[in-house]
Every structure is written in structure tokens, then in C-alpha cells.
């Protein structure tokens, strides 16, 4: 029974390019609940402790799609990743220091799990998360791109996005003649109907 002391051999550290939910807690209880919530075809749930969260996050390629936390402290490597990449961040209880402004905080596990489920089943004008990775457009086309996955799952909430990622997503959606486009409000970006943007222009 149990696992060996060699933590470097844990399967949760195996690199994978599929969509991942990283759950960082002190005891793993929240990770068990998140795993029961996330459909296995949508994302792999990786159960991390604060001490190995950075290493496990590095195994989520290109980066974790979502980070769920319930611990008051994170290492600087993890907070740096969360500030630099478009990651959905859901937190239970007091926020860990250094988290970006677009983190969603919850007081009750049930509310957090509802938000996790909603992100997994997000539907933005027919755009949905494809099994494993990528986004299925309304016409069934599969588009790969972690930034677009984050925007679809976060909708209608905005997420922080670099200019480069914004332009990549904008170009991808335009290339596929999507009825949706990213819209920037300061540092935050959300998906809006392209018709609304055209009307503004």
C-alpha cells in the first residue's frame, strides 16, 4: 500500500500536453473533489502540494489550463507562472500572496466546484472545449491554443492577457471567420460577439 519515498517518480510529475487542472492544497482533499467534478475527457486533474506545485505545473504543457488552490502560501515560481500565463485561477479561502488580480475567490467548496464545472462545460456561441486539448468552433473545426481555451472557459469573465497572446487569438478567430473576437479592457480580455465590435468601430 502507499507510495515510495521517491517523490520524483510520482506519476503526477509526468509531462503531458493535454489540458490540466492543477490543484494545490496541503492535504489533497479538494483535489479529490475537483477530480469528481472534471470530466476525464476534458482535463487531467493533478494533485499538488505547495512544495511540489512548481514542478508539477512545469509538467503541464504548455501550462496548466486551470489552477485551483486552497493553501495560503505558494512558491514564487508558481505565482510568477500565474502572472505570466493566461490561467484560470480559482481559490478557496484566503488568497495566497502574489496571485494576479483575475483570481476568483470562494468561501465555500461547493461554489468553487460549480465554477470548475461551468468552465469545463463552457459554450461561447458554439465554441466549446474539445476533449483533451483545443477548442471546437461552431462548425466543428478543432483549433489548438491554450489561450483560446482559457478565454472560452472564463467567459463571460475577463482574463489577463499579453498583447502577443491577444493578437494570436484574434488572428486565429478571424482566420476561422468566427462570430466572436477578443476585446481588451485595460489588462483584461474577454470574448465578445464580433458584431458588437464592428458596431463600436
Amino acid at each position: 500500500m502507499g507510495v515510495s519515498d521517491d517523490r520524483s517518480m510520482l506519476g503526477v510529475l509526468a509531462p503531458d500536453r493535454g489540458r490540466s487542472v492543477l490543484v494545490v492544497t496541503d492535504d489533497g482533499e479538494l483535489a479529490v473533489a475537483v477530480r469528481d467534478t472534471v470530466p476525464p475527457a476534458i482535463a487531467l486533474v493533478r494533485d499538488a502540494r505547495p512544495g511540489d506545485a512548481a514542478e508539477i505545473a512545469a509538467a503541464c504543457l504548455p501550462w496548466p489550463w486551470m489552477v485551483v488552490g486552497g493553501t495560503p502560501a505558494l512558491t514564487p515560481e508558481v505565482t510568477a507562472l500565474l502572472r505570466d500565463r493566461p490561467v484560470l485561477i480559482l481559490w478557496l479561502g484566503p488568497l495566497a500572496a502574489g496571485l494576479p488580480a483575475d483570481v476568483r475567490r470562494f468561501d465555500r467548496p461547493a461554489a468553487l466546484l460549480e465554477a470548475v464545472a461551468a468552465a469545463c462545460h463552457a459554450d461561447v456561441g458554439g465554441m466549446r472545449l474539445a476533449p483533451g486539448s483545443g477548442v471546437e468552433l461552431r462548425d466543428g473545426t478543432l483549433v489548438r491554443g491554450a489561450t483560446l481555451e482559457a478565454l472560452v472557459a472564463a467567459h463571460p469573465r475577463p482574463i489577463a492577457l499579453s498583447s502577443r497572446s491577444f493578437h494570436t487569438v484574434s488572428g486565429t478567430l478571424a482566420r476561422h471567420a468566427s462570430a466572436w473576437q477578443p476585446q481588451r479592457e485595460g489588462a483584461l480580455v474577454t470574448l465578445v460577439p464580433a458584431s458588437r465590435m464592428a458596431a463600436r468601430a
Binding site: 476533449p131 462548425d139 466543428g140 483549433v143 489548438r144 487569438v169
Partner: peptide, 24 residues
């Protein structure tokens, strides 16, 4: 095909894979 030796089966008929985008 999801690239990098990753495959799955799909029952729907309309899905067409496209090349990966630059942001991962």
C-alpha cells in the same frame, strides 16, 4: 490527431483538425 503522437476517436462527422497556434 492532436499532434505529438496523440490521437482520439470522434463520432461526430464535422470536426476538422487545424494546425496548432503559436501560443501552445
Amino acid at each position: 490527431s492532436h499532434g505529438n503522437r496523440k490521437y482520439r476517436l470522434a463520432v461526430t462527422v464535422s470536426e476538422v483538425p487545424s494546425p496548432p497556434d503559436a501560443d501552445g
